Simulated assay, not measured.
Amino acid sequence: MLIMVAMVLFVFFLSLAVMLISSLLAKKAIRDREKCSPFECGFDPKGSARLPFSLRFFLIAIIFLIFDVEITLLLPLVIVSKLITAHTWAATGIFFLLILLIGLYHEWNQGALEWSV
């Protein structure tokens, strides 16, 4: 227990020392207005908040998130494959991918993947 506390304190003080040294040795740049302003996805933070937003960009972003979540749901199937039978594991994975492919086909058929204006 004492060794673990000592290691945590050592890591804490080591990281504190590295941050202190890097802030002392860092090149001090002249700050201008553009570098200090926040950048929010290409929008001007000082402009109007009522600018039109591209619906196509939003749909592509949502489709990307769906397939990103799909990957995170498929990865645990490999770990679970050791606990359940191969037929159950394969059927679950194929069923899940089939649902996603049908959804992708529907999005493609509806024209949500077309980027032209």
Results as ranks from 00 to 15, higher is better:
Thr85Glu: 05
Thr92Phe: 00
Trp89Gln: 02
Trp115Cys: 10
Ile79Glu: 10
Ile3Ser: 10
Thr92Gln: 00
Ile63Trp: 08
Arg50Gly: 13
Asp68Val: 14
Trp115Phe: 14
Ile99Phe: 15
Leu113Tyr: 01
Ser37Phe: 11
Asp68His: 13
Glu114Ala: 13
Phe12Leu: 14
Asp32Trp: 04
Ile21Gln: 05
Trp115Ser: 14
Ser54Met: 04
Arg50Met: 14
Ile62Trp: 10
Arg50Ile: 09
Asn109Phe: 01
Lys27Trp: 10
Ser37Lys: 13
Val69Asn: 12
Ala91Gln: 08
Val11Gln: 04
Ile21Asp: 03
Ile30His: 14
Ala26Gln: 09
Phe95Lys: 13
Thr72Gly: 09
Ile30Gly: 12
Leu2Gly: 06
Val78Thr: 11
Tyr105Trp: 13
Pro45Gln: 01
Phe13Arg: 06
Ser81Tyr: 01
His87Pro: 07
Ile94Gln: 00
Ile63Pro: 00
Leu24Ile: 03
Leu77Thr: 00
Phe53His: 13
Trp89His: 05
Leu83Thr: 12
Lys28Glu: 00
Gly93Lys: 01
Gly47Lys: 05
His87Gln: 15
Ser48Lys: 02
Phe58Asn: 08
Leu73Ile: 10
Phe58Thr: 06
Glu34Trp: 09
Phe96Asp: 02
Val69Tyr: 11
Phe57Gly: 15
Glu40His: 12
Pro38Leu: 00
Lys27Ala: 08
Thr92Pro: 01
Leu51Cys: 08
Ile102Ser: 06
Ile84Asn: 04
Leu59Ser: 02
Asn109Gly: 04
Leu25Gln: 09
Leu73Ser: 06
Val5His: 12
Leu74Val: 12
Pro38Ser: 01
Lys27Asp: 09
Ile30Trp: 11
Leu59Glu: 02
Thr72Glu: 09
Gln110Lys: 06
Thr72Phe: 12
Ser37Val: 08
Lys46Asn: 15
Phe43Lys: 05
Lys28Ile: 00
Phe53Ser: 09
Leu113Met: 01
Leu9Pro: 02
Leu59Gln: 04
Met19Ile: 12
Leu59Phe: 11
Leu97Phe: 07
Ser37Glu: 14
Leu24Gln: 04
Ile21His: 06
Pro76Cys: 00
Phe57Met: 14
Phe95Trp: 08
Ala86Cys: 03
Gln110Tyr: 08
Ala61Glu: 07
Leu113Arg: 02
Asn109Ala: 05
Asp32Ala: 03
Arg31Thr: 13
Val80Met: 08
Val8Gly: 01
Leu2Asp: 11
Leu9Thr: 03
Glu34Arg: 07
Met19Phe: 15
Ile62Leu: 10
Arg56Trp: 07
Phe13Thr: 03
Ala61Ile: 08
Tyr105Asp: 07
Arg31Gly: 13
Gln110His: 08
Tyr105Met: 10
Val78Lys: 08
Ile63Met: 07
Ala29Glu: 15
Lys27Val: 05
Phe39Asn: 10
Ile94Asn: 03
Asp32Ser: 04
Phe10Leu: 10
Leu73Thr: 09
Gly103Asp: 02
Ala112Arg: 03
Leu55His: 11
Ala90Trp: 05
Ala61Lys: 08
Leu100Tyr: 05
Glu107Ala: 10
Ala90Val: 06
Leu16His: 06
Ala90Phe: 05
Ile63His: 01
Trp108Asn: 02
Pro45Ile: 00
Leu25Trp: 05
Leu25Ala: 14
Leu51Phe: 14
Leu25Thr: 07
Glu107Trp: 11
Trp108Pro: 02
Ser37Cys: 11
Met1Glu: 14
Ala29Phe: 15
Arg33Ser: 10
Leu9Cys: 05
Ile66Arg: 11
Glu34Phe: 10
His106Ser: 15
Val78Gln: 08
Leu25Phe: 09
